[in-house]
Design a protein around this nucleic acid. Structure first.
Length: 569
RNA sequence: GCGCCCGUAGCUCAGUGGAUUAGAGUACUUGGCUUCGAACCAAGGGGUCGCAGGUUCGAGUCCUGCCGGGCGUACCA
């Protein structure tokens, strides 16, 4: 593809003395293998009819590129449609996706669950998105660091700790042992919901909760593991991390390189913010990136003074407690200190988009490199059928683990007894096939669909091919030539793979892979329907080769989505 | 009010580096298993691409306005 692009660019240069970008697209199969609208783009500049330009180029291509291009035609308003020779098409199979990120260090932060809170459907989604993005950049050759950041300090923890102590009737860590292991995550979730209700409705209790929150920060500052309060905290925190590990294990995502609890970067965040706060005793830099609020002791960044589309946000509140913003400052600086990354991708739900822009704009003023190299990728939220938003604060959540168990149940109900691999394929594919950024309308029934445009369809289309290969008596390497129409059509689709992977990687948009793999599998199923492989006489060797290449391609693509490609199902 | 995002078939979504006839899945109707796996394949109906202007030889795609929805908009994350 690259060669054709370059060749046409040169032809344009020779014929018209114009330097232009030639875009090649994959048109409808009936039009050929590649297509370009370059003639139409040049039309105005040259003052010529686009068809005339296209004809001139076509003539040149016919005489000069016979080894690669078998047929050129001019169509419609001036499209140049190219059909490759069999040899060129077959040669395209050996092209691997470019290692475009070789030598680069990429950080990918995702999942980001908060201890003391339940894992809801959104966590499942964001974990899967991150896992796929990380697989993509790693596949493109980057040294890939997978980070998982979580709020083990912050108001939600204060709220939970307050409710936990209430439930235990005081600071009695020994009573935690009474809670059965299997119920711990749910138990913690309930305490959080109770605490939130009190915090929102009971003004008298609010100062107590705020004080509890401060004690959590204090406990970290003093490295306290001994006091009864600290024992409760560390025990419950561990319960949460164990619970997260359960989800990751069930999802079979690639293990994280490092978990970064907020408590680890809080101090650096506060210190950095204060060092850049006008009038702060700790200000050693003389900079006034952050300022004291006019009406309280809060430390804020006045985003609108940098860019009208930004707004003011609080980094340290009037209680002296760092908000998410100050912690994010600490996190980004810690990432930079520890890894000196080329690119750092942070994956969150899109409700945090504005917030992240403000934080990055502030950091850019004193640490431009990490700020500029940080990319915020926001995805949509998971909505229940009917558009109801889930909120862990209100307790109306579908948890991440419930989605998996619901998928298993629905799988059983189909009577096909799908394996865990297939259940996971269904769930992962259902989320992955949507473009990152738009909301996901989650329908528990449809997400586990075992037919149509789904993960199990792809696995089935793979297993079918492997089954043929397993039955073949011998497989030898043969050249792909003298192809019949159906064979060529399948080959043509397979050769799109590298282009799709490169596009998905460049755009960080894995859903392109889903779209493609589904089309590829469809192509195979169509081929399968109309053509025998084993026992097809002289065609057998070529068809086996084609089926093997197809199956390998499908398996690789599924791998990038974290979906298994079983031999049988 | 301001900022960002979204509006494509009944439903769920691709297509958004402008371009050849707007595509899938699902649902509905129907046909195909003595033939390498029917979790499959094939056929049919179903769309003023939110509305209105504009740019262009050409707009689902770019620009403007409007309508509808989501998120954010100072001490939550």
């Amino acid at each position: 593809m690259q060669e054709i692009q370059t060749a046409i660019t040169q032809l344009v240069q020779e014929l018209f003395s114009i330097q232009t970008d030639v875009e090649l697209t994959r048109p409808d199969e009936q039009f050929g293998d590649y297509s370009t609208n370059v003639a139409m783009k040049l039309s105005k500049q040259l003052g010529k009819n686009p068809r005339e330009i296209a004809e001139m180029l076509a003539e040149k291509i016919r005489t000069e590129s016979g080894a690669v291009v078998a047929d050129v035609s001019v169509a419609g308003p001036g499209f140049l449609n190219l059909t490759l020779t069999e040899a060129a098409l077959a040669a395209a199979l050996s092209v691997q996706p470019a290692k475009s990120l070789a030598g680069k260090k990429w950080l990918v932060e995702y999942s980001d669950p908060n201890p003391f809170k339940p894992l809801h459907a959104g966590h499942l989604y964001t974990t899967l998105v991150g896992d796929t993005i990380a697989r993509l950049v790693e596949h493109a050759g980057a040294e890939t660091i997978r980070l998982n950041y979580g709020g083990d300090v912050g108001r939600h923890v204060g709220i939970s700790m307050w409710a936990i102590v209430q439930f235990l009737g005081g600071e009695h860590p020994e009573k935690l042992a009474d809670i059965p292991e299997a119920e711990r995550p749910t138990w913690l979730g309930k305490r959080y919901v109770e605490g939130t209700a009190v915090f929102e409705e009971d003004e008298a209790a609010r100062p107590e909760i705020i004080a509890t929150n401060k004690r959590v920060y204090q406990l970290h500052a003093e490295n306290d593991h001994e006091s009864p309060f600290a024992q409760i905290y560390w025990t419950c925190r561990k319960w949460s991390y164990d619970y997260f590990a359960t989800l990751y294990e069930q999802l079979q995502v690639v293990p994280f390189t490092r978990m970064i609890p907020e408590s680890e970067i809080t101090e650096e965040g506060i210190r950095t913010v204060r060092e850049h706060t006008a009038g702060d005793p700790l200000n050693t830099t003389g900079s006034g990136v952050y300022v004291r609020s006019d009406d309280s002791d809060a430390v804020v960044f006045r985003g609108e003074q940098t860019d009208e589309s930004l707004h003011t946000r609080v980094f340290i509140n009037s209680e002296g407690i760092p908000t998410y913003e100050a912690k994010e400052v600490g996190l980004i600086l810690e990432k930079w200190r520890a890894y000196q990354f080329d690119t750092s991708v942070v994956i969150t739900a899109n409700e945090q988009e504005q917030y992240m822009r403000v934080v990055l704009a502030s950091i850019a003023k004193f640490a431009p490199e990490p700020a500029q190299r940080t990319r915020h990728l926001n995805h949509g939220i998971v909505k229940l059928q009917g558009g109801v938003k889930m909120s862990s604060r209100k307790g109306n959540v579908v948890t991440a683990l419930e989605i998996l168990s619901a998928a298993r149940e629905a799988g059983e109900a189909t009577g096909t007894n799908p394996s865990e691999e297939t259940i996971l394929a269904a769930v992962k594919y259902a989320f992955a096939r949507n473009r990152i950024g738009s909301d996901i309308a989650y329908d528990p029934k449809e997400s586990i669909a075992l037919e149509g445009n789904s993960g199990p369809y792809l696995q089935y289309a793979h297993a079918r091919a492997r089954s043929i290969l397993a039955k073949a008596s011998e497989q030898k390497e043969v050249g792909l030539s003298g192809l019949e129409a159906d064979e060529r059509s399948l080959l043509r689709k397979i050769t799109e793979y590298t282009e799709v992977i490169e596009r998905a990687t460049n755009e960080l948009m894995p859903h392109h892979i889903c779209t493609y793999l589904y089309e590829l599998a469809q192509k195979f199923n169509q081929f399968y329907e109309h053509n025998r492989v084993i026992g097809s006489g002289e065609r057998e060797a070529v068809r086996l080769q084609l089926v093997r290449t197809y199956a390998d391609t499908l398996k690789n693509g599924l791998g990038l989505l974290g979906i298994a490609a079983p031999e049988r199902m």
